[in-house]
Structure formats: structure tokens, C-alpha cells
Design a protein around this nucleic acid. Structure first.
Length: 955
RNA sequence: GUCGGAGUGGCGGAAUUGGCAGACGCGCUAGAUUAAGGAUCUAGUGCCCGAAAGGGUGUGGGGGUUCAAGUCCCCCCUCCGACACCA
């Protein structure tokens, strides 16, 4: 039997189907490219804006900067889940453009990073070759969707002309210090001045004039916002690099590749983001972001008010050091200084620097065996405990479990009472938080309670719990007890009183700590921005002069990092570029050879400021022209300014967004940008999920081949189980945009993705539902065009009042929904209007067709252009004005009002829209059914809501 | 565990300030058209009772406020996400 040979009999020649959609789409895409339709003038101040000139409109010439989080150009191509947010911003940008805004809508590529390097390692192909091919491919795929990005402004973080400015920003940060009094970054030159004039004292206390050059450099390096710090870092030997905390999973493995990660101290570039903790926190109140993201950032910053308190060591028994002398003081951080009288032990993190100096030689007679860990001496106990801790994986360490620890054989003194309490090492105390030391207050802290029970330590309450409290530790409100002069005070007062007391005696002070750590900024990788830093024989860093930028990546034969073992030192691949590794500069002492920094910047660097480069992508003199920056970023109404709409995944809630905010604030402090925040409005789009199917062995089967029967799923004859997950190769459930173009066209894909649900929600992809969106476009086409001849069918008659009112209600609803990014509702309303046209059957009045096309233009630009031109317009619909609803036509002339009896709808009456309350009530009572139901009953009350309903309440 | 977000037909989802629950779409049912339909068109479609008219019921569960609750208040359950010994 011949298959696939059936002719197209019965299918009209000019039906809007996949074939026609593709023809229309490619034609208009070519036209847009040729015309530069989506280009926004590079100097917005010098050019008259394109588009509707809505004279008298308040939005006239208002700017709008709309952006997506730019993608990593992956080699595996797009699936339909990727462009959801891009389509959303595209529709919004098009809508706003038609409303008279000057819109900037660019797109770029976050192209440094590990995958390209991994690919290079596997194939021997240079990362740049692979990266540029992927970018070309991805930008072709995006253009095919009809996304109206400004192609002049496309950038990749790997472009030498781009990372030149990434390096330039690094230098600004390197050459700055944070003035804690002024609460802002200032140029390092101003710090030198303060040191010279003695307005600020050096950390060593030495006079600036008497310091050697090297001493001065060391002093300055301690203040720089970018500095080399010895810090415990996440060393990932398999990747040959260190990772930021955020790149390490809860299981203690690398986020990328799932390799083991080890904590060890190393000298690395750090960024002093902690100096900005308070401002990063405070300005969250001024941006228009989802509250959930703000909360995540607040939690990440982890501001915590409390006090440092010093506990003197050297108390009986088991003194350390010389008899009669006291040892070093242990400083703890606590949020509850008011509970200090309940302190029964001192707990140190195993890594605490004082531990080795404190540990006693012998156990005092009668030591509780639980405290010794079974060891003969405290030193042995400590060593064993540390070895035990080191042997544990991070997962084991981080899981909450029984509290463990060993006594160091020494005591310290509680400053308020002078009472000795034992000093333990316990691994539930974290070296990274606070001071790495904790006063154990079991009465008010459950962890300390657990520890005390296990080690037989006394427990005393210092806050009176309510009478019905039957738990263990109590951390709620209540008066202080067993606390000397604090007794009877509530928490806040008690904290105030004890802090005053401690501060007077110099053994404590109020403070604020943060969970946020300084940002580990170097990676031992090839495919990243080189640091514009060199070293001289002192080993201290020196900035490469701005005029010498960019510091370009060397060409390498062997760029792969070496997989190493746990104990080896990182070997940056750039070290293998032996010629490059040495550079000659004149840094003031004439031309001399210097050693280059061999690490590269993390992937976050390039994404920290790309929004600024979009504004002025070709500027060779500055990262962005100040006037251009002000035009696009400043808020004339006095807000924080920044990008007007930034759309991306919530997975960047802390990392990228926090780093970018930090850089922006540094640039703001230094006067390079006009406002304190990069992203005024942030919107997180949801993720498209797709059904995935597993057979009885748990193996994924090709999702497109699974059929549903009676609510069960079959692949061939085998029943398979369904769950929903991320679209991709591993679940064998990916659907590509190409699949949809070939079946329906890009406009249908756009419509379906926007119609699936609100943009911020995840939703399951259903290929079989796409047909609904296609039908809509097909019916729209049929409303305006004869399917047999391809001729326009619209007629030059005025619509009747009903239709005209419906058109205006639709305009209002669509504009409202689009302003709110509720594109699903906008499409529903457009559908209703078109359904009405279909229902009427006759030719569509021209004015209605005109409105319909313009309502659709943001959603389906290709189809809209085609119909727009068929309607006789010679200019693009992209800059056509969005229809305006006439308020006079919004309200219907007659309305249907439900009539309730005792809250239940019993009838509906049709009345004039302008009916009076009394007439409405009378009409309701006069309704036949209502009269029947209320006859003889005692009407207690009648609630009449104008235009809404009448409710008759019977006794 | 803590902090967020969400639970509405078979499915995706609508529903300014409390005011007709289920818009719009998928699917399904029936019909039209067709050589055929996985195309297109028309009609119907929350659930239960009923031939129909109509009635009852219904937004995770339970209570409450109100003439009126998906929407407000209290308690509980489930799912998703983030953080996870943060002193």
C-alpha cells in the first residue's frame, strides 16, 4: 500500500499550517535582520526613538532595559525548556515597545567555564574554537524563535575586548579599600594619604614614614578589596582547582562533576564581599524581587547580632603554661550573652588555633572517663579526635548526630563569676562561624543540652520557661534567673545589661557576625580571565597598568588541568605557558620582568557586569559611557535603578546575584555607575518539566514512544512507570524546538510556552497540547484570510456595538495581563475575541482585524507581521502602537446580575448597567423565580452590590 | 529540623477590593465534512440524583468570621524548593 502519497485534497491551499508558518517565519526573520529592526540606537540620547510617538502619553520616551540571564553556550543545543524565559522577556519587550517605551533587549553568552575545557581535554580542540561554534549555533537557534534581540550588542564573556574590562574592574577592586566609617569603597591612594597624614593608624602601629616599601605594600594589601588570603578552601584534586563554597554540594563534592573536595588552607585571591554585608542586606529592601529570593540572600548573608566574650584560661585544674600565669583568652561569639551565667563548658572547634597551645600534658586525677575519649593523655585524645574528624566525609560531618568531643585537660573562667569550666574540643563547633569557639549553655541551647547530657555536665536554667514548658533547652522569652544582677530582666534588657557590664570590664563587646564569607576568587584553570596581576621578587602582587590591558590568555597546547591527589599543590595550566608566565612591564622602576599570576577568575566574574556592557558594547575608552549608563540604569523617580526586568532561574538566587550586586556597589562607590543596585526588578521563571518513563528495570525509555492506555503507560507491550523531571538526554524526554517548528512553526511554540501557565511557575511539557495553540493561530488566520485564495477577507464596515465593546474589553484585559507578565491570561482573552469572530462567521471588520493583529504582535511576531502587511501596512508591526482601550466602551450596556436567596444563586436578571440600587433590588424581587421562592417568607435583609449581585436573606 | 512556595475538574490552568468557582486550552463524547483522519468545523463536558425541569454537592482536611469565603482568621495534612549543628 502506498503511504504518504495522499494528496492534499480537502486541505485548503492557504491554510495556516507548519509549512506556511515556516515560510512566513523565515521570510520575516530575514527581513528583520536586513532592516536591523531590533537595534536600539547605541547613543539613545542622540537619536529620536523609533516606534509610536504617543504624544501626551506619560510613558513617552521612557526607557526600559529588559534582560535574561545569559546562557552558557552548551554544545548539546536547546530543548524547549530553555527558551521559556527568553520568550517571556521577548513578548514583554515587544509589548512595551508598542506602548511607546524605548526598549533595550540584548542577549549574550557566559562562555568561560569548565565544560569547554573538559571538551578540550577530551577532543584536543581549543576551548575557543568549541565555544565560538556553540555560540554561533545557539544564536541561530534563538533567532529561529523570533527573539528580537539587539544583535549589535551581543557579547561573550570570552571576547578579548570584553574580558579586558572584566580585568579593568578587577583592578578597580584591587586598588580599593573599604572605609568602614564612610561605609564605602575608596581608592587605595586615599588610604595612603590617610596613613601619611596619620589620620589612620597602620595595623602594625608603625608610622607610615618609618615603614619600608615592602612593609607599606603588605599594609596596603591587607586593606584591598581583592587580596591574597590564606584561607581554608575547597580543594578539588580531580578538577585540579579550588572551588567556592557555593560550588560544593552538601555531600562535600564538586557541584560540577561530583568529585571529592577537601578542605585545606591555601593562598588564594579573595574578594572582601563581607565588607558589603550590611549594604547587601539593607538594599534588598529597595529592589523589586520575589520575596523568596530576598530571603535566600538574607539567609546566605546570615547577619547575627550578639557579643564577643573573652574567657581567661589557666584556671585550676590542669593549668597550661607557667604556674600562676594565665593562658591566652578564648573569645567566643554568642547571640545570647544574657545566658552567660548558665555556661558550664567551653567548646572549641577542632581547627581552633588555640587548641594546641592549651592542651594539657596529663589528665588530672579523677577525670571523668567520658571526657578522655579513652586516651592516656589529653594530647593523645586530641590527636585521635582530630584524626577521627578528618576521616569522616563532609556528609557524615554535616549530618546531625550525637555530640562528640574530648576535654583538653584545662579549664577557663567565666568572666562574670570567675568560675572554672572545662574546655572541650567538639566538632559540632564550626571554625568558619563566629570565632570557632562557643560557650556551652545547655539550659538555653539544645545542642549544648545534648552535649552536657552525654558528658555529664551540669545543666542550669538562666531563663524561666513558662509553667507548661516540658522540653529540654528553652530558648523562648522569659525573665532571667540564676543570673545575679540580670535576674528578672527580659531577654533584650538582659542582653543590654550584660553587654554593658562586659564592655566596662574589657572582657566583651557587642558585635555583628555574618555567615557570608569572603569570596574565593581564583581558579586553577585555563579557560577563564587571566588576572591582571604580576609579582616581583617580594612575592607581593602588583597591578598590571590599565594601559596594558587586556592580559590575553596564552595559546596552549596542553591546557587541561592535571588531576591530582589530595595532598598535592594546585598546578595552574597557565604555568605551562612558560613564556607568558613572565612579563615585562614598567611599573615605575623601568622595564623589569615580573612573574604573572597563573590562576584565572571564576566563571562568575564575567557575569558580574555584562548588563553594563550591553549598554555600550563598542566603547574602547570605558566599560560604559557614564551618560549612556545613566540613561539606561538610573531611575528618574529616585529608586535604586538598574535593569528594569531581569529574568532567570532561581538557581542563581544567591551566587550570581550576590556577586553582581557586590561588584555593582564597588563600581557605584568608585563613581563608575549611577545607582547602588544592578537589577531593580528580578523575576524568576519556572522550569519546564517533562514526563519520563522507566521500564521494570528502571531504565529510561524514549518518552516520545510511550503511549497511554486507561491511565497506564506502555512502551511497546511493556508497562512503564511515569514521573516528571528535567528535560534532557539522561531521562530520554527532551523535545527540541526543531521538533515543534516542523510540526507547527515557531509562533505556535511561542504561544504554547506562554499559554502553559504563569511565567514564574514550573509546568509539565505536553507535546499533544501544542495543537491547541496552533489551532488558535489557524483560526486567527481564517478570521482574516480566505484559506482557498489567500486573499484578505476583512471588510470596511464598522463593527456593531457588542463586538466593539468586546474588542475594547479585550484590549484592556490583554494590556493588563501583559503588563503583569500573565501571558497565559492575555492569550485566553485574545482567544475569546477570536472565538467570537469565528462564531459570527462573517467577514471581520477591518478595525477589529487591525486590533487583533496588534494584540497578537508581541506573542507571534511573524504571523502578526504577515497579517499586518496583508492589511496594507508597509511598515513593521514591531513599532506599531499597541491598541488603546476606550474607557467609554469598557462597560457593557446591559449586564446580567445573579440573584441569590440565602447566598445561593437562584436566578439571573438582565438590567441596564446604570441601574440604581433600588431599581436593581426591585427587579430582583420581581423576578418570577425569586418571587416564588420568597413568597410568604420573611425577608430579613437584602444585600445589593451594584453591578455584582443581589442577595435576599430570609429569616 | 528551620525558612519559603504551593494544593481548584481526567490534565495545564482562570477568578482586582471577600460578591455568579472552573475563563482559555488539552483530553473526552456526539454530530458535520471527508475515500480516510492523528486535519477542520459544530455542540456538550466538575461530581451526585433526575427522562427533564430542577435539586444537592464542590477549590487538600477540620473549625471560625460574614448576608456572602478558592480569597480573611486558627489548627492540621500533603507536595515542591532552599538552608541545614550558624552558637
Amino acid at each position: 500500500m502506498a503511504t504518504g502519497t495522499s494528496d492534499q485534497a480537502g486541505i485548503p491551499l492557504y491554510r495556516y499550517n507548519a509549512e506556511m508558518a515556516n515560510e512566513i517565519e523565515l521570510r520575516w526573520q530575514e527581513r528583520w535582520r536586513a532592516d536591523g529592526t531590533y537595534r536600539t540606537p547605541l547613543n539613545p540620547l542622540a537619536s529620536a526613538p523609533r516606534g509610536p510617538q504617543l504624544s501626551g502619553s506619560p510613558v513617552q520616551q521612557k526607557k526600559l532595559f529588559i534582560m535574561d540571564m545569559f546562557p552558557y553556550p552548551s554544545g548539546s543545543g536547546l530543548h524547549v525548556g530553555h527558551p521559556l524565559g527568553y520568550i517571556g522577556t521577548d513578548v514583554y519587550a515587544r509589548f512595551k515597545r508598542m506602548c511607546g517605551y524605548v526598549v533595550l533587549h540584548p542577549m549574550g553568552y557566559d562562555a568561560f567555564g569548565l565544560p569547554a575545557e573538559e571538551h578540550a581535554r577530551q577532543t584536543g580542540e581549543h576551548p575557543r574554537v568549541n565555544t565560538e561554534r556553540n555560540i554561533a549555533n545557539m544564536s541561530r537557534q534563538l533567532a529561529r524563535l523570533g527573539l528580537g534581540h539587539d544583535d549589535q550588542r551581543s557579547l561573550a564573556t570570552t571576547d578579548v575586548e570584553y574580558y579586558r574590562w572584566t580585568q579593568w574592574i578587577f583592578l578597580q577592586i584591587f586598588n580599593s579599600w573599604y572605609d568602614a566609617d564612610a561605609q564605602r569603597a575608596r581608592p587605595i591612594a586615599e588610604l595612603i594619604e590617610l596613613f601619611e597624614t596619620g589620620q589612620k593608624s597602620t595595623s602594625s602601629g608603625a608610622a607610615w614614614a618609618e615603614m619600608t616599601d615592602v612593609e607599606r605594600r603588605i599594609e596596603l594589601d591587607e586593606h584591598r578589596l581583592a587580596y591574597l588570603g590564606e584561607a581554608p578552601v575547597n580543594w578539588c584534586p580531580a578538577l585540579g582547582t579550588v572551588l567556592a563554597n557555593e560550588e560544593v554540594t552538601n555531600e562535600g563534592r564538586s557541584d560540577r562533576g561530583n568529585h571529592p573536595v577537601f578542605r585545606r588552607p591555601m593562598k588564594q585571591w579573595m574578594m572582601r564581599i563581607t565588607s558589603y554585608a550590611d549594604r547587601l542586606l539593607a538594599d534588598l529592601d529597595r529592589v523589586d524581587w520575589f520575596e523568596s529570593v530576598k530571603i535566600m540572600q538574607r539567609n546566605w548573608i546570615g547577619r547575627s547580632e550578639g557579643a564577643y566574650i573573652s574567657f581567661a584560661t589557666g584556671a585550676e585544674p590542669g593549668e597550661s603554661g607557667e604556674p600562676g600565669e594565665s593562658g591566652p583568652a578564648i573569645e567566643v561569639f554568642t547571640t545570647r550573652p544574657d545566658t552567660i551565667y548558665g555556661t558550664t563548658a567551653m567548646l572549641l572547634a577542632p581547627e581552633h588555633p588555640l587548641v594546641d597551645g592549651l592542651v594539657a600534658d596529663e589528665w588530672p586525677a579523677g577525670t571523668d572517663p567520658r571526657w578522655t575519649g579513652g586516651a592516656a593523655t589529653p594530647r593523645e585524645a586530641l590527636d585521635e579526635y582530630r584524626a577521627q574528624a578528618a576521616a569522616m566525609t563532609d556528609l557524615q560531618r554535616q549530618t546531625e548526630r550525637d555530640k562528640t568531643g574530648v576535654w583538653l585537660g584545662v579549664n577557663c573562667r567565666v568572666p562574670t563569676t570567675g568560675e572554672p569550666v572545662p574546655v572541650f574540643v567538639a566538632d559540632y563547633v564550626l571554625i568558619d562561624y563566629g570565632t570557632g569557639a562557643v560557650m556551652s549553655v545547655p539550659g538555653e541551647d539544645q545542642r549544648d543540652w545534648d552535649f552536657s547530657v552525654r558528658f555529664g555536665l551540669p545543666i542550669m536554667r538562666t531563663v524561666q520557661p513558662p509553667p507548661d514548658f516540658d522540653g529540654e533547652a528553652y530558648d523562648g522569652p522569659g525573665p532571667a534567673i540564676n543570673s545575679d544582677f540580670l535576674n528578672g530582666l527580659e531577654k533584650a534588657e538582659a542582653i543590654d545589661a550584660i553587654c554593658g557590664w562586659l564592655e566596662e570590664r574589657g572582657c566583651g563587646r557587642r558585635t555583628v557576625t555574618y555567615k557570608l564569607r569572603d569570596w574565593l576568587f581564583s581558579r586553577q584553570r585555563y579557560w577563564g580571565e587571566p588576572f591582571p596581576i604580576v609579582f616581583d621578587e617580594t612575592g607581593l602582587p602588583l597591578a598590571v597598568p590599565e594601559a596594558e590591558l587586556p592580559v590575553e590568555l596564552p595559546e596552549l597546547i596542553d591546557w587541561a588541568p592535571r588531576a591530582l591527589d589530595e595532598s598535592s599543590e594546585p598546578e595552574p595550566p597557565l604555568g605551562r605557558a612558560t613564556e607568558w608566565a613572565t612579563a615585562t612591564y614598567d611599573l615605575g622602576d623601568g622595564e623589569r620582568a615580573y612573574r604573572r599570576e597563573l590562576s584565572t577568575m571564576p566563571q562568575w566574574a564575567g557575569s558580574c557586569w555584562y548588563y553594563l556592557r550591553y549598554l555600550d558594547p563598542t566603547n574602547d575608552d570605558a566599560l560604559v559611557d557614564p551618560e549612556v549608563e545613566r540613561f539606561w540604569m538610573a531611575d528618574p523617580d529616585g529608586g535604586v535603578g538598574g535593569v528594569d526586568l531581569y529574568v532567570g532561574g532561581v538557581e542563581h538566587a544567591v551566587l550570581h546575584l550576590l556577586y553582581a550586586r557586590f561588584w555593582h556597589k564597588v563600581l557605584y562607590d568608585l563613581g563608575h555607575v549611577s545607582g547602588p543596585e544592578p537589577f531593580g526588578r528580578l523575576y524568576n521563571q519556572g522550569y519546564i518539566q517533562a514526563a519520563a518513563y522507566q521500564d521494570s528495570r528502571g531504565v529510561y525509555v524514549e518518552a516520545s514512544e510511550v503511549v497511554e492506555r486507561d491511565g497506564r503507560f506502555f512502551w511497546g507491550d511493556d508497562e512503564v512507570s511515569r514521573h516528571f523531571g528535567k528535560m534532557g538526554k539522561s531521562l530520554r524526554n527532551a523535545v527540541t524546538p526543531d521538533d515543534i517548528y516542523s510540526a507547527y512553526g515557531a509562533d505556535t511554540l511561542r504561544t504554547y510556552e506562554m499559554f502553559m501557565g504563569p511565567l514564574d511557575q514550573g509546568r509539565p511539557w505536553e507535546t499533544h497540547s501544542v495543537i491547541g495553540s496552533h489551532r488558535l493561530l489557524q483560526r486567527v488566520w481564517r478570521s482574516l484570510v480566505d484559506e482557498q485564495t489567500g486573499e484578505l477577507t476583512v471588510v470596511d464596515v464598522e463593527p456593531d456595538t457588542d463586538l466593539e465593546r468586546m474588542v475594547h474589553r479585550t484590549i484592556a484585559a490583554v494590556a493588563d495581563a501583559m503588563s503583569d507578565l500573565r501571558f497565559n491570561s492575555a492569550i485566553a482573552r485574545i482567544t475569546e475575541l477570536n472565538n467570537e469572530l469565528t462564531r459570527r462567521g462573517g467577514p471581520t471588520p477591518r478595525s477589529v482585524a487591525d486590533v487583533l493583529v496588534r494584540l497578537l504582535a508581541p506573542l507571534v511576531p511573524h504571523l502578526a507581521e504577515e497579517l499586518w502587511s496583508k492589511l496594507g501596512n508597509s511598515t513593521t508591526v514591531v513599532y506599531a502602537p499597541f491598541p488603546q482601550a476606550d474607557p467609554a466602551l469598557l462597560a457593557a450596556e446591559v449586564i446580567e446580575v445573579p440573584v441569590q436567596v440565602n447566598g445561593k444563586v437562584r436566578s439571573r436578571i438582565t438590567v441596564d448597567a446604570g441601574i440604581s440600587l433600588a431599581d436593581l433590588e426591585a427587579a430582583a424581587k420581581a423576578d418570577e423565580r425569586i418571587a416564588q421562592l420568597t413568597a410568604g417568607a420573611d425577608i430579613q435583609r437584602v444585600v445589593t452590590v451594584p453591578g455584582k449581585l443581589v442577595n435576599i436573606v430570609l429569616a
